[in-house]
Amino acid sequence: MAQPFEDWYKNLPIVTKLYMTGCVVTTIGVYLELVHPLQLYLNFPLITKRYEVWRLVTNFLFYDHIGLNFLFHMYFLVRHSRLLEEGSFRGRSGDYLFMWIFGASLLLIINAILFYSKLYTSSILFLAPSMAFMVVYVWSKRNPNIHISFLRLFTFSAPFLPWVILTIGYLFHHSLANDILGIVVGHIYYYLEDVYPTVSNRRLLKTPSILKSLFDNNNHALDPDQQRHAPVANWAQPEQQQQQDQQQQEQEPVAVNE
């Protein structure tokens, strides 16, 4: 039986739920013409000269007008964000929110450098796709043993997922600037959070205590050393779960009526 939308939405982890809600509300607002994308996009001159500081946030909340592209981005983002928050960030939503804040801040800094240095002539108006790509990249690096089937044509391991998406975008002449930015920022976070502490025994990224106190669920929290090896939610691996259930049923004793 299909899971009711209310139950599905209620069971979403807090950070994933908040971001998805913000994106949906923003997109509906654009659809109803309550707000225009020109009021949302990232524009540094308007931010610095007219103090339209909300653009620093709203450019992360709009993907596209309601349609197939928007639904695809929402599905892809929510799926992998939920896997990440319920997996390696289980019980540590404060740390997960800090990852988003770190990623968003770094994306803004890089975009500002590109804008003012004229290194990239085409302005990136919305950084929401870059955030989605960052989430997918971090998830893929933390789940190297997961195998993904693409339209049942070929199978590859999770770390190749960002590059497969990038290749498909290139074949369809999609602009790759957002995706590449997401990969760069995702790799920086992955290196600082997962790689650097293992080689230096130091952590450069520390979540503010206020985020931990507001969002963390310590009853289900994982130790930092366990986070990159956390199990993935069962619903993300339907084939493996079905095989496990079948094996369990075969091992259970069968009652025989005499």
Rank of each mutant, 00 (worst) to 15 (best):
residue 13 P to F: 05
residue 14 I to L: 13
residue 16 T to A: 13
residue 16 T to H: 07
residue 19 Y to T: 07
residue 21 T to Y: 03
residue 24 V to P: 02
residue 28 I to C: 06
residue 31 Y to P: 00
residue 31 Y to M: 06
residue 32 L to Q: 06
residue 32 L to C: 10
residue 32 L to K: 07
residue 34 L to Q: 08
residue 34 L to R: 03
residue 35 V to C: 01
residue 35 V to G: 02
residue 36 H to Q: 10
residue 40 L to N: 06
residue 40 L to I: 08
residue 41 Y to W: 10
residue 41 Y to R: 09
residue 42 L to T: 07
residue 43 N to Q: 11
residue 46 L to H: 09
residue 47 I to W: 07
residue 47 I to L: 06
residue 48 T to M: 14
residue 51 Y to D: 06
residue 51 Y to T: 10
residue 51 Y to Q: 12
residue 53 V to T: 15
residue 54 W to T: 13
residue 55 R to S: 08
residue 56 L to I: 13
residue 60 F to Q: 07
residue 61 L to W: 06
residue 62 F to D: 09
residue 65 H to C: 11
residue 66 I to V: 15
residue 66 I to T: 13
residue 69 N to H: 15
residue 69 N to Y: 12
residue 70 F to G: 05
residue 72 F to M: 14
residue 72 F to T: 14
residue 73 H to T: 04
residue 75 Y to A: 13
residue 78 V to H: 04
residue 78 V to W: 01
residue 79 R to F: 12
residue 80 H to W: 06
residue 83 L to G: 14
residue 87 G to H: 05
residue 90 R to L: 12
residue 91 G to M: 08
residue 94 G to A: 07
residue 95 D to Y: 00
residue 96 Y to D: 03
residue 98 F to L: 01
residue 98 F to T: 00
residue 100 W to L: 10
residue 100 W to M: 10
residue 101 I to R: 01
residue 101 I to S: 05
residue 101 I to P: 00
residue 103 G to C: 08
residue 106 L to Y: 01
residue 107 L to D: 01
residue 108 L to Y: 02
residue 111 N to E: 09
residue 112 A to N: 03
residue 113 I to D: 01
residue 117 S to G: 11
residue 122 S to L: 06
residue 126 F to M: 03
residue 127 L to V: 06
residue 128 A to N: 10
residue 129 P to A: 06
residue 130 S to R: 03
residue 131 M to N: 10
residue 133 F to A: 11
residue 134 M to G: 03
